[in-house]
Amino acid sequence: MNVFRLAGDMTHLLSILLLLLKIYATKSCSGVSRKTQELYAIVFIFRYLDLFTDFISVYNTFMKVVFIASSLAIVWCMRFHPVVRRSYDRELDTFRYFFLVGASFALALIWHEKFSVQEVFWAFSIYLEAVAILPQLVLLQRSGNVDNLTGQYVFFLGAYRAFYILNWIYRYLTEPRFTRWIAGTSGVVQTALYADFFYYYFISWKNNSKLKLPA
């Protein structure tokens, strides 16, 4: 574990806590893409298939459980919570994410660490996570005003993988024969997809104005 990876995990955890806070405090999920939340639930379930077979550390197991449980809880709230579900932007959250799932799985069948069920699903979860934010970014563009907590959620969700890129660089420089080509390539694509959001987020922070993504 290095400081970059710890910062990445804590930033990721913070983003999830911010989203839970927004939904709990406002009893609303306006501006939040349920499709992105469902994609993240799929990402965590298929990435952590080794949850019960490979014990890495208490921290690792704990965080995996937190990520799976929180993503499922958020999807449950947005689908079934009697109050929260009413604020879901159903008519704006229309990204056809089936193609993202299909393309990620097809790529995982071609490019993986090892041709085994666990490794193909692991690569699938890595590729899917890279594009999972797309429905959320599209929703932000369509729903003009973005509330602070939702903006902060997306910001920290994008920042966490940037910390992981620093972690991979650090490990590549300090550990012999360390490579993470699949996660590294996918992580760069994932972080790049946030580029324009980061730009408009910085502008809104600098001008102390409401975050606004151009349609």
Binding site: H12, N60, M63, Y164, A183
Partner: peptide, 10 residues
């Protein structure tokens, strides 16, 4: 197993 430790990251 050593193999299992491969995915030591989240």
């Amino acid at each position: 197993s050593a193999e299992g430790k491969y995915h030591d990251e989240l």
